[in-house]
Design a protein around this nucleic acid. Structure first.
Lengths: 256, 256
DNA sequence: GAGCCGGCAATGGTTAGACCTTTCGACGTT
DNA sequence: AACGTCGAAAGGTCTAACCATTGCCGGCTC
């Protein structure tokens, strides 16, 4: 039952501005903008939709693929094409940033700094706005960290969840998304770093400082605590990298 | 000149993990990662590349299109497919963020806040690092603003260039890209707001405050000046929006 | 009667081949 | 030497089919 087969799909005008597939993208984009397609909705089958839009199936598929590439649509063979469900925090695909990093030779230091700036911003906002529930969630994650000082992988889970919680408490989903985008790229790095487990206790302490500043609704203290935490993490990573450098396989360092 | 037709293109294994086109994407991604494809390079013709990778042309095109959608590749009919040139500041495509805004009903207030946070971050970094040339460029743009108080469009040009310069002076291209991504979405808004030209003089003054703080290498002052400037801009936009609200045509406000 | 299993239909994924449109360079003319 | 024209090259689009996966529905079994 395609309850979308009404006339909300308008035939593409031949007097289009760009290419046909670009026009398809615009059509779908506008439908999402106008709210005619909402998260979780299933699009009509490609064959039908192609006919509705007045284009061939390959052209339609090209448009769908472009939107799928940026994380707006998702196709599942045999099932259909869906508007991506807003499960939990909205997230932007990090692959564009990742590729841009490769293209322009971004250094890891730059990545760390970007993350630090974003985390400081959300920490400051979180200190202004965090609800009791959110504070409790942060506290729990901090407790989880202290409880898994001997289990680096588990520690990392709590670590990431803590940062997620802080981001959510900032109340700004855009900053949260951007932060996640950058953090995702640094994720592999963090796994390696945390596995060394040199100072998990110190890391947990620093997280607790962030939490306390947020609890006290002290944005400046929260920003500083977060900044200190990430600076420490970066230094730990750098030390790690230098030690492992003889391997020389990692190309994260562009230094073009 | 296809010095790329060598064996750097490996045939896709049938024992692939995902779909064929996903594998194509991975192949191209890795080639960019490894530096075998660099900004400005032209890919082999689709027909040749499809044969080299062992896939059909539509499948290859699907992969290319996905990468084009995220701004890594760019196809020009009759010319070829190119790895996007790193002309000036690297930029991320803002359409993903724009669509996500529609999907999740992001409010403009959230956008403004995100932009404010990012601009504050780069302003702070710029205060620490701006070179003499960059400071001079900022000064020039501020002068340009004062010189075009009666020409809102020209004023906006200097306004944007000023922010660009500050971002460049931050030395962090990732933050710059993210900032541009958000700023691009608010661009249309800014055009409308600045056209009212109610307080261009005050705006120019505030930009000068930012410039002076950066010149004095005072990050905290730079952050505050930038924050004040953007808060003011946001208030101006909000007032504008309320006045124009009876029109009711703008869908930027999700408030879902 | 309930639950499991197989097959069928729907749907996206892939391929093939052809033709159109645009671009850009090379050649010839002025 | 400069300009214009032509053609090859390359991406854009289309038709038509087949493959692979998914999900449902009906029949079979316990």
């Amino acid at each position: 039952m395609t309850d979308l087969n009404s006339d909300i799909f308008k035939t593409i005008d031949p007097e289009r501005r760009g290419t046909t597939s670009e026009e398809v993208i615009s059509q779908l984009r506008e439908m999402i903008h106008r709210g005619e397609l909402r998260p979780g909705d299933r699009l009509p089958p490609e064959r039908d939709l192609a006919k509705l839009l007045g284009v061939s199936r390959p052209t339609l598929r090209a448009g769908i693929r472009s939107l799928a590439a940026v994380g707006v649509l998702q196709s599942r063979q045999g099932a259909g094409t869906f508007v991506v469900k807003a499960d939990g925090p909205p997230s932007l695909d990090s692959s564009p940033l990742r590729l841009m990093a490769s293209l322009h030779g971004f250094t890891s230091a730059e990545m760390f700094e970007a993350r630090q700036s974003l985390e400081m911003a959300v920490a400051g906002l979180a200190a202004e706005r965090a609800t009791g529930d959110q504070q409790a969630a942060m506290s729990e994650e901090v407790a989880g960290m202290f409880a898994s000082l001997d289990d680096p992988e588990q520690f990392l889970v709590h670590d990431m969840r803590f940062h997620q919680t802080v981001a959510a408490a900032s109340g700004n989903r855009i900053l949260t998304s951007l932060m996640n985008m950058v953090a995702t790229i640094l994720f592999d790095t963090r796994i390696k770093t945390v596995k060394r487990a040199t100072d998990l206790k110190e890391s947990a302490e620093m997280h607790r400082h962030v939490y306390r500043a947020i609890r006290e609704h002290d944005p400046e203290a929260a920003r500083h605590a977060m900044s200190a935490h990430l600076s420490k993490a970066q230094r730990a990573w750098e030390a790690e990298t230098i030690e492992t450098q003889e391997n020389g396989s990692d190309n994260s360092e562009g230094n073009g």
